[in-house]
């Protein structure tokens, strides 16, 4: 009985998925219409134009076939503007990780310092509050103008956007370490470094990890938009390139890939969070 309960949620998910595909399939069933132009003209235009209809949204089978095609050959490279989805995802991931790690290198130490000193925290707070809600794409023109390099700009945009959640969470986590623990450390005459690494860091770790988890989500959201703008390589460029060809099937494939990678990144961070969580 208990094992049956365990399977209930996945089964429900599967049913929902099948229902969604079914509705999609039904909605995109081709309507039979006679060709209303001569054969020579029909050869020059798409199927929809030959039958006098609007070109339709792709059916699930079309998208499935396209995904299969990409899965068969994810790493092909036919020139600088035509690379497989796998390579594009790798480029995006590399940019995200570069920007994200740089942000972590800055945010965690700085967050630590301002978390330990309430005065610094209050002094920096207005700046953080103003910079935090700025849309990543608003940074883009400024980055392009000052850094004069589009791939560095993309990394910078990732950096600046993943910085704030980590910074704020680290500061918050450090500031809200229980007073008793700090008092115990004081009673035992623990040195400041030892206090920071053996008492505060473990205590604040779950909060810091939560900030990092929020940040990776934001970074992954941002990279697609940034790459659509600067082009060249990456999954965002792939989406733009296929939009240029008005290929909805390829865009749906890319959307699915973006979602899956985002989910994997989040799962990874969730696992790491569980590692540092402690029972109180």
């Amino acid at each position: 009985m208990k094992r049956l309960m365990h399977w209930r949620a996945p089964a429900l998910s599967l049913i929902m998925f099948l229902l969604f595909i079914g509705i999609w399939h039904a909605a995109t069933l081709p309507t039979a219409a006679p060709q209303n132009v001569n054969d020579e003209y029909a050869r020059l235009v798409g199927k929809a134009a030959a039958t006098g209809q609007k070109s339709s949204f792709p059916a699930p089978a079309d998208v499935g076939a396209k995904i299969w095609q990409h899965l068969k050959e994810p790493f092909y490279d036919r020139g600088p503007n035509d690379k497989g989805v796998g390579i594009q995802l790798a480029y995006s991931l590399a940019r995200v990780l570069a920007g994200y790690l740089l942000a972590a290198l800055v945010a965690i130490p700085v967050g630590f310092l301002i978390g330990m000193s309430p005065t610094t925290y209050r002094a920096l707070d207005p700046f953080i509050q103003v910079l935090k809600p700025i849309s990543p794409l608003a940074w883009m023109p400024l980055a392009l103008f000052t850094l004069k390099d589009s791939s560095v700009s993309a990394v910078f945009v990732i950096f600046i956007c993943s910085l704030w959640p980590m910074l704020i969470n680290t500061a918050f986590g450090v500031a809200s370490v229980r007073r008793e623990w700090l008092n115990v450390a004081k009673t035992l005459e623990v040195g400041p470094f030892r206090k920071a690494f053996r008492v505060i860091l473990p205590a604040a770790a779950p909060t810091i990890m939560t900030g990092m988890r929020i940040s990776i989500g934001i970074a992954w959201l941002v990279i697609v938009a940034a790459e659509m703008l600067v082009g060249g390589t990456g999954i965002g460029y792939f989406v733009w390139n296929e939009w240029n060809n008005l290929s909805i099937t390829n865009i749906l494939t890319a959307i699915l890939a973006i979602g899956l990678v985002g989910m994997l990144l989040d799962l990874l961070l969730a696992r790491l969070t569980r590692l540092v969580t402690f029972p109180e």
Binding site: P80, N81, K148, S150, V230
Partner: peptide, 20 residues
């Protein structure tokens, strides 16, 4: 020569001006 496909005229202008 590397031919780089670009997303729009403004981007072409900016990338030419910044030397990319």
């Amino acid at each position: 020569v590397s031919l780089i496909k670009t997303a729009g005229w403004a981007v072409v202008r900016d990338k030419t001006l910044n030397g990319e």
